[in-house]
Lab assay of single mutants.
Amino acid sequence: SKICLVCGDEASGCHYGVVTCGSCKVFFKRAVEGQHNYLCAGRNDCIIDKIRRKNCPACRLQKCLQAGMNLGARKS
């Protein structure tokens, strides 16, 4: 099975251009559409994995963007 390129959980498919799990898919959509201005309490290098993905939305969003997630991406 495929793994989420953001948190490493089991992926549910290709979302916004990137193979991700459902949790990261929903997080990314809400983060971008809600125009959240997340700030990292650390050094913008928090570990984002299945267990810690909820700890720092700033670093999670950064990881989504680095993976290439794009709200305008067509479903493939």
Rank of each mutant, 00 (worst) to 15 (best):
G42W: 05
A31G: 13
N37R: 13
C7V: 00
G17D: 11
C46M: 01
N44F: 08
I48W: 08
R53T: 10
N44T: 09
E33M: 10
F27H: 02
G68R: 04
K75T: 14
R43I: 11
A67Q: 04
L5C: 08
G8A: 15
V26H: 11
S12E: 15
R74Q: 08
I48G: 11
M69D: 03
K63C: 05
S12Q: 12
M69G: 03
K2T: 10
G17R: 10
F28V: 03
L61Y: 15
C64Y: 02
Q66I: 11
V32E: 13
G34D: 13
K2Y: 07
V19D: 13
R52K: 09
P57H: 13
G42P: 02
N55R: 12
H36Q: 13
I48S: 05
D9M: 05
A41C: 12
V26G: 12
K54E: 10
Q62N: 15
K54P: 08
A31E: 12
R52S: 10
V26K: 13
C7L: 00
C7S: 00
F27G: 01
C4F: 01
L39H: 13
R53Q: 09
G68N: 04
C46H: 12
R43S: 13
F27N: 00
C14E: 12
L65M: 09
N37E: 15
K29T: 12
Q62D: 07
V19K: 13
Q66F: 12
R43C: 05
G34C: 04
C24K: 00
L65T: 11
C14W: 10
S12G: 04
E33C: 06
S76A: 07
H36L: 07
N70P: 12
C40E: 01
E33H: 08
C21G: 00
A67G: 08
C7H: 01
M69T: 02
L65D: 09
N44M: 08
D49A: 05
R53N: 08
A11R: 07
G22E: 12
I51H: 15
D49I: 03
C21F: 02
H15T: 06
T20M: 04
Q66S: 14
R43V: 11
G13M: 11
I51L: 14
V18H: 02
I51V: 15
N37A: 11
Q62S: 10
C24W: 00
A11K: 06
C7Y: 01
G17E: 13
C4V: 00
M69I: 02
A67N: 07
Q35K: 14
S23Q: 12
E33Y: 07
K2N: 13
G13H: 12
C7T: 00
C14Y: 08
V18C: 15
S76Y: 08
R43N: 12
